[in-house]
Design a protein around this nucleic acid. Sequence first.
RNA 1: GGUCGCUUAGCUCAACGGUAGAGCGCUUCAUUCACAUUGAAGAGGUUAAAGGUUCAAAUCCUUUAGCGACCACCA
Length: 698
Amino acid sequence: MDSKYSPQLVEEKIYRGWEEKNLFKATVNKNKKPFSIILPPPNANANLHLGHAMYAYEDIMIRYKKLSGFETLWLPGADHAGFETQFVYEKHLKKEGKSRFDFNRETLYKNIMEFVMNNRSNMENQLKRLGFALDWSRKKFTIDEDIIKAVYKTFKKLSDEGLVYREKRLVNYCTFCGTSFSDLEVVHKEKISSLYYMKYGPFTLATTRPETKFGDTAVAVNPKDKRYKGWIGKEVEVEGLNGKFKLKVVAENSVDPKFGTGVVKVTPAHDFTDFETGKHHNLELKQVIGFDGKLNELAGPYQGLYVNEARKKIVDDMQTKGLIVKIKEDYSHRVGTCYKCGRILEPLPKEQWFVKVRPLAEKAQKLVDKDEIKIVPKKFKKVLLWWLKNFRDWNISRQIVWGIRIPAYHCKTKDDWFISTDKPVKCQICGDCDFQQDTDTFDTWFSSAQWPFATLRVNPSLFDYFYPTSVMETGYDILPWWVARMIMVGVFATGKKPFETVFLHGMVRDRNGQKMSKSKGNVIDPILMIDKYGADALRSALIFGTKEGGDVALSEQKVVGMRNFVNKIWNMGRFIEMNNQVKSQKSKVKSTIQNSKVLKELEKEYKKEKKQYLKYMNSYQFSQALGLVYEFIWHRFADYYIEQLKDEVINGNIEALGGLKEVYLENLKMLHPFIPFVTETVWKVFMGKEKSILNSEL
RNA sequence: GGUCGCUUAGCUCAACGGUAGAGCGCUUCAUUCACAUUGAAGAGGUUAAAGGUUCAAAUCCUUUAGCGACCACCA
């Protein structure tokens, strides 16, 4: 053994060894208890970041359970990440001076598939660099044929049970990205705008969006507002830019008498509140902004102008006509923006597929509330319950190409839709029209929500044995996007909860607790850290001295610190091994009474350590477990016991050496889930090249 | 505006009802020793503030002050 441990020399070889011996391969073994985790599939086309390294928690659980005698499955996958990926691909196209509009649907899809497939193996290799004990023989891709089939089946079932419907509603639409989103994808941002007070027939009203006035179909006031009570139900004539028009005055509770003048113009086609108002009063839906972000023919001379240009021009013209009373320029409010491109989202009326969420959410709520699905750490239980209680219907239609195309078909004769899991040969409504498939694709999260059962169902015996999965481990940031939906959809589709326990980890921050971002320049590349200090060091740096579910401050210094720990482990082994080799050449020396006492103390302290370790590991306190072993092996075992017995051991005292060796090997096993590479490397030195610590028992 | 959480050693954080801990940094000393990616010794904290419960509180409760995250249809 060298005086220094060099992860660079062994990690790759060790991982290959694990794979070749099929140590990560799960089988259906009725003699063992199953333990399974489905890896949250990383985006297929991107490099891993430190957030992915946090999946080390899953590796810790898998290896620990395997050492504890469970049959373990950790199933890897890759996410096609629909819109995310298409967005990245479009950026890539732009560099070549092209855009998505230069290709037909089939070609674009094929090109993106190629683009993704070229990058996928890179991502997978990075997971291997982290040392993850994944069963690669069972890897799945969210856009595999059988996964698509599973997704279609669920969609059909939802539809059959009345939980999916198609409706024209206001959706959050990004006119730049060219697609709608669900509520969850909308990022509300504080913005300073102008609040325009304008003359509106007999009233003055305040609005931030004068350009939508061509779509106004009513004026609303609060029914309790004495100032305007007399106007309710009456029709008023309004002088506009394109001539005079008439509108009804309606009463609406949502109108705040204290805001502005207490009068609101109602634009059902371009405002969520107004859309509701429109429904209450049966108002016409007058769309004046198109999906291209420009005003349409209803805007008369302003047709063809983008929203912002139109607003300016309209305000100018209104001022000329004396229709603007005043402008409050520093008005601060929140607007919905596209989480991807950052532009302001336009509420637009569009026919989309919606999932009726309430019945699904209520079932999920019960499971979580009664701890039938356990949430660790428990603080997230409240958050999850809040979401399950507040979810509204889920828009699952996306106007993009890269994704799973919705298996809904439009009958031209009857102007109606039917859903079919297999490609239909004839119209299932009228029997012989030239029906057409919906051009939209599913929200990626709709398919991701099905991941735990979709990945396993392809193999029924595997599904029976491993489902519900044991733990779902992921970052707390996607609790509503993913975890909540997996529960809702999983229970619906299989009748069983998708997992027993949810374990949530925190976000990785820089040394000052700041968010890592490219613009701040404080991003740490996990692969670079592995190159420099080894995977064991990086992994344990993310776990050591932290609290489960809390954010982790990571610095290169911390990785160095853990590298030192890993090296220390190596050198303890080196000391024992060196004396192990020479022992046969020396005469057998018996222990003194003093040394026997030390050995007994060691045995006692080790037993206490292990008991506590098991307690921590079984209650998901992994950082505590690691800290415990760290403290024991370094500051008790090495600093005290080895030092006490050192002279004896060098003298050839087999008893002392044996005592140290035994405790050392036991500690290697306890450490293996955290620092798999060095523990395996030393294990092989002691037990032989063909042996693996993963085959031992804890 | 709502919800959740945070405030402990210079920095980043553990401990969550029973004598204040770690990592990194700092000070002093020790190298023919498994490891200087080391060891020994040490400095450094009335655990944000106030009140309460308890034999006992960093830990439970209340209030206050800062900070953060997430959510929200104020036109």
